[in-house]
């Protein structure tokens, strides 16, 4: 082991746990990540459907969000990334959700890991920047890496629907968590690719970031936003 002054090999790991924790007060627990609309439409009926749903979300919206987060953590201009996020989010319901979650995360981030870059983005986007951009900047402010930011983003992408499915379908929580555990190697791979894309965007511009999208998530989000009563905010 190193001397008392050397940084531990796991530097940042505890900060990552704090940021990725579902109890981090950023409002994510109120969102199902499209699962509530998919359950109503009959597209998620059991743990198997949930696994396929999560995998589809991970490789589309998840990859796109993770690359934006990694790029923000790397130090790319958050306002340019926010514009790139808008272009990658055709659904106004999802843009509103992303900005609301971004605003809530910003409030928590400025209390936990305050810094001038967070202040600047909060001032430029008082109604909230897209959540993945704020997430990346929060990771940066906490001293975390682009890979860490991407890991947080991909985990949120599947953690939201899995938790929501427990409530929506009375799914066994052990089964729902097993779905997440089986996805873990995919989460690692997608987070790794997202960080590579972020480095490519640093050289070539934000056009190099992925824009993977999922038609039914966009359609379902608009249907869900029109419901008079719902369990989850999105």
């Amino acid at each position: 082991m190193g001397t008392p002054d050397a940084p531990p090999v796991s530097a940042g790991r505890a900060a990552l746990l704090v940021l990725a924790d579902g109890r981090f007060p950023a409002g994510g627990h109120a969102h199902s990540g499209g699962a509530e609309a998919a359950v109503r439409a009959g597209r998620i009926r059991d743990a198997r459907d949930l696994a396929v749903f999560c995998r589809g979300r991970l490789h589309t919206a998840g990859l796109t969000a993770a690359a934006l987060a990694a790029a923000a953590a790397l130090g790319l201009d958050p306002l340019v990334l926010d514009e790139a996020a808008d272009a990658r989010t055709p659904s106004p319901a999802l843009r509103a959700t992303a900005r609301r979650l971004g605003r809530q995360l910003m409030r928590a981030a400025r209390a936990t890991w305050p810094g001038p870059e967070l202040d600047a983005l909060a001032a430029a986007r008082p109604r909230g920047a897209h959540q993945p951009v704020v997430l990346g900047l929060t990771a940066r402010s906490a001293g975390l890496s682009p890979e860490d930011a991407a890991h947080c983003a991909v985990y949120e992408t599947v953690g939201g629907p899995a938790t929501a499915a427990v409530r929506l379908l009375s799914l066994d929580p052990f089964e729902a968590t097993a779905v997440l555990a089986r996805l873990a190697p995919d989460l690692d791979r997608v987070a790794g690719r997202a960080a590579e894309y972020a480095r490519q965007a640093e050289r070539e511009g934000t056009g190099a970031l992925p824009a993977a999208s999922a038609p039914l998530l966009d359609i379902g989000a608009e249907a869900h936003a029109a419901w008079p009563v719902r369990l989850f905010a999105s």
Binding site: R43, V52, G56, D186, L216
Partner: peptide
């Protein structure tokens, strides 16, 4: 799609046996 040099819409879709898993599920094509 770029308008006056700014991004307006950017979308990627991937389907079929060579696409990442989940493309045929409830999040993407159902």
């Amino acid at each position: 799609v770029l308008r006056a040099g700014r991004p307006l819409l950017d979308q990627e879709l991937s389907y079929g046996p060579g696409a990442p898993a989940g493309w045929d599920g409830g999040a993407v094509l159902g």
